[in-house]
Amino acid sequence: MTGELQGKVAVVTGGASGLGEGLARRFVAEGAKVLIGDIDREAGAALAADLGADAHFVEADVADIEQVSALVSTAIDRFGGLHVMVNNAGVSGTMHRRFLDDDLADFDHVMRINVRAVMAGTRDAARHMSQHGGGSIINLTSIGGIQAGGGVMTYRASKAAVIQFTKSAAIELAHYEIRVNAIAPGNIRTAIVRKSATGEDLQKLEQFEAAIREQMRNDRPLKREGTIEDVAEAALYFATDRSRYVTGTVLPIDGGTVAGKAIVRKPKSEKPN
């Protein structure tokens, strides 16, 4: 590790597991002090203990924007400032076989977490950064917000909203030297799909996940599997001065999926003797 975030303070929402955990670990390894916010008290406390004195966990539900504000103020009070805000917390929503069967009962819940919390986190972090020389705000979206497709329609709509908001906030906050960028992971194995499959038994879920991942793998130009570490590397770039002239961008971490489907090349036939 290179210590690129030495002296920096970061907040990572949804930081107790999955992508958020990977980002928190990488940031601490690079010298940052990290406040981890999550609803999972046990996992969050365990992660903070594992990371040591440079990490602190706060139990928070980002569906309540007052708790988002508390994460920002706690980071400032505990560590003396805020330089990087990662709005990572998100939910997929209930999965349905067809959009025609979707009762939209989870719409408000998904939008509160995936959109409103991102807006609140950006706003609250920017209020501090605007008075202290700027900073970096990183919003987690998804290739589902870039590329149209069937299934989890509310989730797709929420992630598309994050992209438009990120670009708009980047334009307005540039005056204060605040950079706002988004990362769009694709086919990174985390528990978000598993958590969304309410009412499905484990075997059916595993079969569903396997089928979806196989299709994505076949369509993806790069055949290596994406990892949480790949996303953390992108977040590190946006968090550091290496991206000081970069704002309003959306970076897919997806093996080329949104660029287009893989080209299937047939093996060359052997020449006759």
Rank of each mutant, 00 (worst) to 15 (best):
A55M: 04
L236C: 10
G81F: 06
P221A: 05
A234W: 01
F27S: 01
E42C: 04
R217N: 07
E59G: 09
T94V: 14
Q164G: 10
I36P: 02
R116Y: 12
R265H: 08
G20S: 06
L71Q: 07
R220Y: 01
S142L: 06
E229D: 15
T198E: 13
M111V: 11
P267Y: 07
G22C: 03
K271F: 14
E214G: 08
G90M: 03
E209A: 14
K223N: 07
D219F: 06
T249V: 15
P252I: 08
T74S: 11
L5I: 01
F79L: 01
K261C: 01
E200L: 14
H128D: 05
H56Y: 06
M129N: 12
D201C: 12
D64K: 11
V62M: 00
L47E: 01
E172K: 12
N181E: 10
N139C: 09
A148W: 03
A161E: 12
A46C: 05
K195M: 08
V246M: 08
Q147K: 11
H132W: 05
D54K: 02
T154V: 15
A191L: 03
F238H: 00
T13C: 02
I192E: 06
V258P: 12
I137M: 00
I171T: 12
A32G: 11
N181W: 12
V180H: 09
V152W: 13
I183A: 06
G150W: 04
G144P: 03
A197V: 14
T166N: 09
G134P: 05
V28S: 00
I228Q: 04
Y245Q: 08
S17V: 08
I171H: 11
I188H: 10
E177Y: 13
I39E: 07
D219W: 08
N88T: 03
E233R: 15
R189I: 12
R213K: 13
H83M: 03
A191V: 08
G121K: 03
K223D: 09
R213H: 04
V72H: 03
A184S: 14
R97G: 14
A157D: 07
T2R: 15
H128Y: 15
G150C: 05
L205C: 04
G90H: 13
I171Q: 07
T227V: 07
F107D: 01
R194G: 12
M85A: 04
E225V: 13
F238M: 12
V72N: 05
L19S: 00
V62N: 00
P185C: 03
A53Q: 15
I39M: 13
V152F: 11
G18W: 05
E206S: 11
D201K: 09
A75L: 02
G199R: 00
G226I: 02
A148P: 13
V72E: 11
S196C: 00
A105P: 01
K33N: 11
R25E: 05
A60I: 02
F165S: 12
T190Y: 07
E177C: 14
L236T: 07
G31R: 05
T247E: 11
H175A: 12
T166K: 05
H109A: 10
G15C: 00
T247N: 09
R97F: 09
G80S: 08
E4G: 02
I36K: 00
A16N: 01
T2S: 15
K271W: 09
A174S: 14
T227Q: 08
G3Y: 06
Q207E: 15
S73I: 06
V258G: 03
